[in-house]
Amino acid sequence: MAIDTQQPGHRLDKRPGGSGPPNRVRRVLEDNGALTALAVLVLVLSFWTGNFFTTTNLLNVGVQAAVTAILAFGVTFAIVSGGIDLSVGSVAAFSGVMLGWFTTTQGMPVFLGVVLAILSGTAAGLVNGILISYGKLPPFIATLAMLSAARGLAQVVSEGSPVVLPDSLTWIGKTMGEWLPVPVLVMIAMGLLAALVLNRTYSGRSMYAIGGNEEAAHLSGIRVRRQKLVIYTLVGTFAAIAGIVLASRLASAQPTAANGYELDAIAAVVIGGASLAGGVGKASGTLIGALILAVLRNGLNLLDVSAFWQQVVIGVVIALAVLLDTLRRRA
C-alpha cells in the first residue's frame, strides 16, 4: 500500500549523522545482537515506508507489543531458571474471562474485579509451581497440562462466548491524555518490575543460580523448591496482567484470546538473548525481542505483505536472531 520506492541506500547514508556516533553506541550495539537487529529494522522500515516512523504508528507498535511483552517478562523468569512456561496464553485468556465474569456477570466493582482476576492467574501459576516443585513434573509437561486446563476453564466460565466488559474498565485499553496508550504504560511498568525482580531480589538472583546449576544452588542453601513455586506463581501473575490488558483493549473478554501467544512470548525471550538452558537472560532483552516481533508485524502490514507470508518471515527472523547470537558468542 505505501511502499516508498525511493532508493533506500541513498538516504541511509545521510541520516545517521556522518562520523558522529560515538564508539560507545557501537559497542552497545555489538554487545547486543537483538538491539542491533531492532535498530536496523526500524531504520529500514522508516526509509522504506513513509508512515512507519510516525508517533501514531510507533505508539501503535507499542500497543501491539504490550501483551506479548508482559507475557514474555513472566516467561523470562521461567527460562532464566532453566524451565519453561507454555501456559501463559491460556492463563491470560482465563484471567481475562474471570475479569469479565467478576465485573459483568457478578457485577462486582471494577477495582475488586481486577484484583480477583490477577489472583486467578496467580493461582493458575501457583498450581504450575506446585506440580513442578513438589510433584517433580518437568516444567514442559506441567505447563502443557495447564495450557489445556486454563483454556478449558476460560470456556467453562464464559460458556464459550465473549463477555462484554463494563465501560469503566476499557480505559485500560485506551489512551491517556489523548495520545499515551495505557497498555504501553503497563508494559513499561511490568518491564521495570521484571528487571527489578531479576537483578535485585533474592528470588531473581536465585533464578539465575538455579538455571546456572541447580545442584550447586541447592548445595549453597538456596531453597530450590520454594523458589520454583515463587517463579511459576510470578509467571502466572504476569500472564494475568497481560490478559487484563488484552481484554480491555478488545472491550470484551474472549475465551479464545491469546491463543498461541505463549510461543510469541518464548520467541521474544529467546530473541532477547536468553538461553533455554537457563542461567542467562534479561528483562531488557525480552522487551527488545517483543518489540522486534511487533515492529516486524507492523512493518509487514504497512508493506502489504500477506498474513501467510508474515508467518514465514517471523519464523525466519526468530531463527536468524538466535543463529546470529550463537555465532557472535562463539567468535
Binding site: 533474592y202 538472583r205 539465575y208 543460580a209 546456572g212 546449576n213 550447586a216 544452588a217 542453601g221
Partner: peptide, 20 residues
C-alpha cells in the same frame, strides 16, 4: 557439577550462599 555456576561470574559464585 555441584559447586559452581560455571557461566556466572566469580562475584556471583562467591555471593551465592550469602544471598539471603
Amino acid at each position: 557439577g555441584q559447586g559452581l555456576l560455571p557461566d556466572a561470574s566469580v562475584a556471583e559464585n562467591l555471593g551465592l550462599v550469602t544471598l539471603r
